[in-house]
Design a protein around this nucleic acid. Structure first.
Lengths: 213, 213
DNA sequence: TGCGAGTTTGCTGTCAATGCATTAACCTCT
DNA sequence: AGAGGTTAATGCATTGACAGCAAACTCGCA
């Protein structure tokens, strides 16, 4: 639970206003996407629903896809934090698996209205899939960097990258398989967690020996 | 060097013509992308360079990005073939390792004039990255499915997916790191293949050891 | 030779995204 | 409080990817 030291006691009116508009945009987009589908929803509609000009939308999000990932760096930050405060006895793989738990937890907390929509859209809309995978790659790179910093002796750059890729690939692969066609059936969120966890552990097993030695 | 048994003795004039145009498009695109960059090249330019109408381009490729992956299914086919003719003594991991090697060696996809360009573009152009990752995901899913079919008793769907994801993720992660280090030198296909091989090598080392060579 | 399926193109329209210029809304400092 | 600077909001115009439509064309084959 690291606290940031950023001085942000009282956001100015301007900032509050901006944050409000941003939220309005996200909510509007989530609902429109949900009801009409992603491709059937135009940026102009989203903007109108949030009561701003079309042009202004792009002052908040660089592209239509970007609004699907309003908090794209949250996961990466959680992971990095988990890597940062590691037990000196832990090996890379253990740290990563712990980071995985940390992510699951931070995800459970902050439930953006976009999360569900996004997951559903992932399977049907290529543009969404592409963007999601890019976000994932960015996170993966970040993880690789941190990992290499944390274990400069055991891991060289390429190996760290391979390990990070292995982890994210395994997790996303397992999720992809679990979610399948019709999303998660609600109640089994916990079940999902443990299954992902197990599958991931299986998929990383060889690293445990290799990285240690 | 598998020979297809498809009855294709003499492609009709029509088919030959179409294939020729297709090749012309790919070459033109590769060169233009290389010289001016991806985003700076319009579909109209590519079409013009291949001497066809702009509209016709979309009769050959569904989107501008698609021309970057002219034979994305070659990989999938190579992989499936590798999984298909497995030794009954092999375990899932052995088969996977062999399949990934097959991908690294597969000619079809690497020899294309597009391979080098694509790799360079991957790091600079978001659209290319997105598409590349989607292609990879598709391949990964295919691998997972085949793997599960080949080992219905040892692997459940989720584990198969995690395994497929973990290994492809590791390889692509390593490749990403390798290329990030110092890019790709020439447009030359050997270079591309060398990188892929290096990445495969690094990423799969732990697995090979665990699998007892 | 002529019909019919498959192709090529141009035209038109939609939509995302960007550059530019203008105006309105805050913020700060005195 | 009010001037002056800054940031945000918007409108307008433009570019470029695509899709639908319909006319002109090209091959394959009877």
């Amino acid at each position: 639970m690291a606290r940031h030291e950023t001085a942000a006691p009282e956001p100015s009116l301007r900032e509050r206003k901006r944050a409000r508009t941003r939220r309005a945009l996200i909510e509007a987009a989530a609902e429109l996407f949900e009801r009409q589908g992603y491709e059937e929803t135009t940026v102009a509609e989203i903007a109108a629903a949030a009561e701003i000009g079309t042009r202004t939308f792009f002052g908040y999000f660089a592209s239509k896809e970007d609004i699907l990932f309003p908090d794209s760096d949250a996961r990466a930050r959680a992971t990095i934090a988990a890597i940062a405060d590691r037990d000196p006895a832990e090996g890379p793989v253990d740290v990563l698996l712990r980071a995985l738990d940390a992510i699951a937890e931070s995800d459970a907390d902050m439930v953006s209205p976009m999360a569900g929509v996004r997951m559903r859209l992932f399977h049907t809309v290529p543009a969404v899939r592409g963007k999601a995978l890019q976000v994932q790659l960015a996170a993966q790179r970040e993880i690789a960097r941190e990992l290499q910093v944390a274990f400069p002796d055991e891991l060289d750059r390429v190996t760290a990258a391979a390990l990070a890729g292995g982890l994210t690939g395994a997790v996303s692969g397992a999720l992809d398989a679990l979610i399948g066609e019709d999303g998660i059936d609600g109640a089994d969120a916990d079940n999902v967690r443990t299954r992902v966890r197990q599958a991931t552990e299986a998929a990383l097993r060889p690293w445990r020996q290799a990285a240690g030695q």
